[in-house]
Simulated assay, not measured.
Amino acid sequence: MPKTALLFPGQGAQHVGMGVKVAEKYPAAKQLFDQASEILGFDLLDVCANGPEDRINSTAVSQPALYVSSLASLEIVKDQAPAVLDEATHAAGLSLGEYTALAFAEALSFEDGLRVVKVRGEAMQAAADATPSGMVSLLLLDVDKVEEVCQQASEHGLIQIANYLCPGNLVVSGDKAACEAVVGIAEAAGGRPVPLKVAGAFHTPIMQSATEKLADILNSVDIKSPRIPVISNVDAESHSDPAEIREILVRQVVHPVLWEKSVRRLMELGVVHFVEVGPGRVLKGLMKRIDRKASMDNYNDESVA
């Protein structure tokens, strides 16, 4: 029996307008946004619909917005390709998307997952505000060369690989001065640096102050063993023990995202069909660089007839 994995996007996939068509067409999706607004204390669908862009891009808003929009997009799959949900054998999500994957796998309830994501986004925003920092996508360089570039830039502050996305696309993260230095060093090495519009140095020790609040909220919610394996960003393995899941979600904030390794692990486990659910097509773009022949579909607002 062919295996299918659902993949959920992370921060960076958000955009003004996401979730609107889904909520308009599917009452169950609209209900998720209504529930979310009560938990968050603001009208999430209105922010998704109207922005402004600066607000939807802020970490404290983009994380819950992506979580809710992605789970709402499952209603499209339920309508257009219900067999996909029945046949899904695995799930994974990029950074924030790991929480969406765990909610899909029923390890977390929708409400509890949103409460955790709310605290995570706020805590990561606070950590970013405390230390001027950022992230830079480095294209066209292999891992060894990016490590060399980081080593050279490290005299300006902390800088390290934060996202192993796909061949030729790695993201480095660190102190602001080091991020500025890495741009010129990467260009000299033949790379194409792209500074990212993010609040700070995610997936590095700069986020350490966010881990305590995240651990507290994770300890306060009920986590069950997932009904299907969810591949973790931290080690590209699945975890069934709730205590282990809590621990690995805390580590994820300060640990590099092993996305390419996670996708290759799913392939090793026999997954032949991937389905990206949620805003944008970021994961499909990465998949083309990991395995151009991989079968992959997308379900988001653009799929709504």
Rank of each mutant, 00 (worst) to 15 (best):
L102Q: 01
L102K: 02
L102W: 01
L102P: 03
A103D: 00
A103R: 02
A103K: 02
F104M: 07
A105Q: 06
A105S: 10
A105C: 04
E106V: 02
E106P: 07
A107Q: 08
A107R: 10
A107P: 12
F110Y: 15
F110V: 13
E111Y: 00
D112M: 00
R115E: 07
R115N: 11
R115Q: 11
V116M: 12
V117F: 02
V117L: 03
V117E: 03
K118M: 09
K118W: 07
V119I: 15
V119F: 04
V119S: 06
R120P: 11
G121L: 04
G121T: 12
G121H: 10
G121E: 09
A123K: 15
A123H: 12
M124R: 13
M124W: 11
Q125W: 06
A126Q: 15
A127S: 15
A127C: 09
D129N: 14
D129P: 11
A130N: 14
A130D: 14
P132S: 07
P132H: 08
S133P: 10
G134T: 06
M135F: 04
V136I: 11
V136E: 03
L138R: 09
L139S: 06
L139D: 06
L139K: 10
L139N: 07
L140I: 04
L140S: 13
L141T: 07
L141H: 10
D142M: 03
D142G: 05
V143I: 04
V143Q: 10
K145E: 07
V146M: 02
V146I: 12
E147C: 06
E147F: 01
E148V: 02
E148Y: 03
C150Y: 01
C150A: 09
Q151W: 01
Q151A: 13
Q151N: 11
Q151C: 03
Q152R: 09
Q152P: 00
Q152L: 05
A153C: 12
S154P: 05
S154D: 01
E155M: 10
E155T: 15
H156G: 05
L158E: 07
L158M: 14
L158I: 11
I159E: 01
I159W: 01
I159L: 05
A162V: 12
A162P: 13
A162D: 12
Y164F: 14
Y164M: 04
L165N: 15
L165A: 06
G168K: 12
G168A: 07
G168M: 09
N169D: 09
N169E: 11
N169F: 00
L170E: 12
L170F: 11
L170D: 13
V172D: 05
S173A: 08
S173D: 05
G174V: 02
D175F: 03
K176V: 13
K176M: 14
K176Y: 12
A177V: 10
A178L: 01
C179A: 10
E180D: 15
A181D: 10
A181M: 09
A181W: 06
V182W: 01
